[in-house]
Amino acid sequence: MDNIHDKTPRETVGRETTNRFRMQFQAAAFAALEILRGKGVDRVYCDYHDDFVVRCSVDGLIEYHFFQVKTKGRANQQWKVDEVFSLKKNKKLDTEEKLAAVRNSIAGKLFIHTIEFGGHCREVTVLSNVHFQDDVYEVRDHLACGKSNRAYIAELINKFGEIFAPGLSLSEEQLAAARSKLTLLQVSYIGETLEPFADAARNAIWKHSEIDLRKEEVDEIASSLVALVEAKSCAPIAGLTKEEIDVIAGVGLDDILQVLSISTTVYKTLLNGGDPSAVKAASILQRQLKSAGASDSMIETASRAKVSWDIWLRKGRHAFPEFDLELLLNDIDNRCKGWVLSGGALAELRIKIDEVLNSKLAEKFPTLTVELLLGGFCASIVRRAAR
């Protein structure tokens, strides 16, 4: 009997398609991590209108960034002009079939978004795991500036409205804006394995939130992020409302926090309390207190206590001598350090709090309570982890 590997497989398209989708999911998952910054990007739609779409809120205006993910099997391959734009350098765009080919090309499908969404379309991007040939960048650049010494590019510029906005009366300014929104992006964080994505995800999480993760945590988070995007990409959306589509097909902050094992309640409590690094603080508190044996409800109580402490401390800087406050903070930090080094048991934390509350120094601060000092210890936990 012949060995199965001695025969050429009849069909390999399924395997190639699986790899392509896997890389698409990785690209969307990586884009979703920018939500952690809390500055602009607030949702990523998966396989909705395009491979994925990033939604940004800028000064109250909603803008969209559309992505086409196109991959090749070998790293030394490059994308050519005819593959990206369906343009032939020595042929004119003189038939409806040729115009339709450009309209249905990789870049063409993206340009349609620039027309349909107008000012709400912020950018359109072809994202790939391999490089683009120089001629592809040349077409992109000449389209953006609106003129070219290359006949085939000049013709595309002149017929841009006819190709992508047939029947519409758009001004030259509108067409110029549409032509200028295409970008080309080659990235190394998508691939057949999860390792490059996991490495990039760790760096992105640190960049956007300063949360440092161990390798085993990163691997689990990376796998969960890609699985999340896959689920969002495959979920049926027919007949759903706009709000339901946001949840079913879109990745939002709540989804990211869940993957990072951060309580949305804890995060929002800290954010509403004025903590500019709420994601990082929530992650640190949850990890430390969870390892100490705290329940979810106790961690939420601790987050509220930290907010109360932060408010008390801000007011205290105007009500108490600065030297006394610094001594109090130093005492809390030293006892917190001792608690963490001793194993960080929850029962021991209460003992440390009582030690501060019953000290001679605490008599100088009559408004101190157990709850406030719990918040003070939580603030110290975050400061220690952030150093």
Rank of each mutant, 00 (worst) to 15 (best):
A305P: 06
S277G: 08
N272G: 03
S291W: 04
I284A: 07
S303Q: 06
A305D: 12
S295H: 04
L289I: 09
A282V: 03
M298N: 02
I299F: 12
A294S: 05
L285E: 13
A294T: 01
S291A: 15
G293C: 15
A294I: 04
P276A: 15
S303E: 04
R287S: 11
N272Y: 13
L289S: 02
G293W: 02
S295L: 00
G274W: 09
A278K: 06
E300L: 11
G293F: 11
A278L: 09
A292M: 08
A292Y: 05
E300G: 00
I284F: 08
D275K: 11
D296G: 07
R304W: 00
D275Y: 14
A302F: 03
G274M: 11
G273R: 02
M298P: 00
A302K: 06
L285D: 09
R287A: 14
K280Y: 14
P276V: 13
I284T: 09
G293D: 03
K280A: 12
Q288V: 12
M298L: 01
A294E: 01
I299Q: 07
A282W: 10
L285V: 14
S303W: 04
S297E: 14
K290F: 00
A305Q: 15
S295K: 05
S291L: 13
A282S: 15
A294R: 05
S303F: 11
K290E: 13
E300T: 06
E300C: 01
M298Q: 06
N272R: 11
K306W: 03
K306D: 13
